[in-house]
């Protein structure tokens, strides 16, 4: 995983494609959130009717 991130960083640095950084960061954060929150079901407790 660390190697993949390093490769991505080097790719952005060499090719000067830093605009890719937000896309990668957002996707990583979303992925982490989805994986970590799996297997829990607290949400139905905090429902609203409308």
């Amino acid at each position: 995983m660390a190697e993949l991130l390093r490769d991505l960083w080097m790719f952005m640095k060499v090719r000067k494609k830093f605009w890719l950084a937000p896309i990668i960061v957002v996707l990583l954060l979303m992925g982490t959130l989805i994986v970590l929150s799996q297997g829990s079901a607290i949400a139905p407790f905090i429902y609203t009717l409308f």
């Binding site: 959130l33 929150s37 829990s40 079901a41 949400a43």
Partner: peptide, 12 residues
């Protein structure tokens, strides 16, 4: 979508 998962994380 994000907030629901934050709730789930908190609950866990």
């Amino acid at each position: 979508f994000i907030m629901e998962r934050v709730y789930q994380l908190m609950g866990k």
